[in-house]
Design a protein around this nucleic acid. Structure first.
Length: 490
RNA sequence: GGCGCCAUCGUCUAGAGGCCCAGGACAGGUGGUUCUCAGCCAUCAGACCGGGGUUCGAAUCCCCGUGGCGCUACCA
């Protein structure tokens, strides 16, 4: 039975990298009929917060990565780690260390400046005689517990990575590392092994920044008598400058993407493609396809740069293929507190709105931006619309005529509006564009919008007529103003 | 400094010795559809880090460089 885990430390929200790690674990569990376990690694009391725990759970839920066990909290398992540490102490695989952080820092600095081979712990307390230990203890010093890394003539630790094959590490490069702090809390390498061992984890799937930790952990697995899990170290996700993804690369919180109007399915699909691909280069996968086609062996080894452009494209794909009714449900939460024509609109109206916008938006939030003229009482004409379209000879006149025509159209729907306006253009002996473009500008304030006739129908007659009138007045004002200037200039 | 990981178009990748003068997707260019934008369709441009080997033959195997990243914590 496959048992995998996602083990974040709650020091912040669920970020993109963590989400991808969680996803790959989840996919592997689901594809193998195994269990996906959630474990919160909160042994660093100073940096862990309950808010972060909530944020991580929220992110996982949003992505639909449901867990079968947990969340387990390492902070609630301290007795277990202490028990194992005691066991190691008793069997001579660990020892108390009385070195202070200051001393260690000093030694480390010296070793680095001396160009020494390794900068690990020098083993001062390893050979400390019992008498010395007793003396230090009697002084009231609280020791940490260090693991005694097995050394010998040629002690190497062998590991096998599913993605990278067999590897060997020389134990001599590993210093005796701390497994229990003086306050009794375990350090990462120790807690991980105890938990993975106790929880029967069969596959450790995590970021490749943990590769260097793996030899230490293997040593611990072995001396603790646990069965060794398989390891799969995933490539990191980078920002565009090829460094670890961080805030300055833009949003890195999964929840921020929800707020921006990305669909969880798109996010999952995109994340799956960061470091994983099928041989046929398929891009769009349903969740079921992802589960059935996923395999650890097909994960690539090199780091992937997070490309929000491709995410945008993919989100657009998902928006376009989502059932219209469902899309309305998804979009409505982003349209809270709107004014203007949308304020009193019924559901049918919103269905129409989404129908004409679904292929134009990449995120649900973009609806708010692109369709802003539906959500306001008084539109603002953009400079672009004004200069390139409206401030042209004959425009006020054409607008007056379209207003007359639209005032009379009966019934007021897309077909009748289109027929009437095209008829008007024909009657005036001008191209339909000469009517359409100024009208669009005056109704939306913009030069680009969905099909004008659909827009007019959605706006409704009263608002359409009002906006045309407002534009005419604005133009009269502007043109009048500029012509006076012109006269004065002459 | 030591140790480790990685290295194909701008980006994500396919490629597991001949199928590759390297395929797909995003982004970009051009053209078409059209009332604009988007979408859609067509089309173009664009990469095997460098050097040595191995082999009849290497993007694929080996070595050495170079570069990037990671670890080297009483952070995970």
């Amino acid at each position: 039975m496959v048992r995998v885990r996602f083990a974040p430390s709650p020091t912040g929200y669920l970020h993109i990298g963590g989400a991808r790690t969680a996803l790959f674990n989840w996919l592997y569990a689901r594809s193998k009929g195994g269990k996906f376990i959630l474990r919160i690694e909160d042994t660093d009391v100073k940096r862990s917060t309950p808010e972060a725990v909530e944020a991580i759970l929220e992110g996982l839920k949003w992505l639909g990565l449901d867990w079968d066990e947990g969340p387990y909290f390492q902070s609630g398992r301290l007795e277990i780690y202490r028990r194992y540490a005691r066991q190691l102490l008793e069997t001579g695989h660990a020892y108390y260390c009385y070195c202070t952080p200051e001393e260690l820092e000093e030694k480390r600095a010296k070793m680095i400046s001396d160009d020494d081979q390794a900068a690990g712990y020098d083993g001062t307390c390893r050979q400390l005689p019992q008498a010395g230990r007793d003396r230090l203890r009697s002084l009231g010093l609280k020791p940490s517990v260090r693991f005694k890394v097995p050394r010998g003539i040629s002690r190497v630790t062998k590991m096998e990575d599913i993605l990278r094959g067999p590897r060997e590490f020389d134990n001599h490069l590993l210093g005796d590392f701390i497994i229990l702090r003086p306050d009794g809390t375990p350090t990462y390498n120790f807690a991980v092994v105890v938990d993975d061992g106790e929880m029967g984890i069969t596959h450790v799937i995590r970021g490749d920044d943990h590769i260097s930790n793996t030899p230490r952990q293997i040593l611990l697995f072995e001396t603790l008598g646990f069965e060794l899990p398989s390891f799969a170290h995933l490539p990191m996700i980078w920002g565009s400058d090829r460094t670890r993804l961080s805030k300055r690369h833009g949003a890195t919180s999964v929840i921020a993407y929800r707020e921006e109007g990305y669909l969880p399915e798109a996010m999952v699909n995109y994340l799956a493609l960061l470091g994983w691909a099928t041989s046929d280069s398929q891009q769009i996968f349903t969740r079921e396809e992802l589960v059935s086609k996923f395999s650890l062996e097909r994960i690539s080894k090199n780091p992937a740069i997070f490309d929000s452009e491709k995410l945008n494209w993919m989100n657009g794909e998902y928006i376009r293929s989502t059932d219209l009714e469902k899309l309305v449900d998804l979009a409505l939460p982003y349209l809270k507190e709107v004014k203007g024509p949308a304020a009193q609109a019924d559901r049918e109206w919103f269905v129409e709105l989404l129908r004409i916008y679904r292929e134009r938006i990449k995120t649900l939030k973009q609806l708010l931006e692109q369709a802003d003229f539906f959500f306001t009482d008084r539109i603002q004409l953009t400079e672009d619309a004004l200069n390139k379209v409206l401030m042209k000879e004959g425009v006020p006149d054409i607008l007056r005529q379209t207003k007359d025509v639209l005032a009379k159209v009966e019934p007021f729907n897309v077909e009748t509006i289109e027929d009437a306006l095209r008829a008007l253009a024909a009657e005036l002996g001008i191209g339909a564009g000469k009517v359409i473009h100024p009208l669009r500008a005056s109704l939306t304030g913009r030069r680009a919008s969905p099909g004008l006739f659909e827009v007019i129908a959605l706006l409704g007659r009263p608002i359409t007529l009002t906006r045309i009138e407002q534009t005419i007045q604005e133009l009269d004002h502007r043109l009048g103003h500029s012509s006076r200037k012109w006269e004065m200039g002459n």
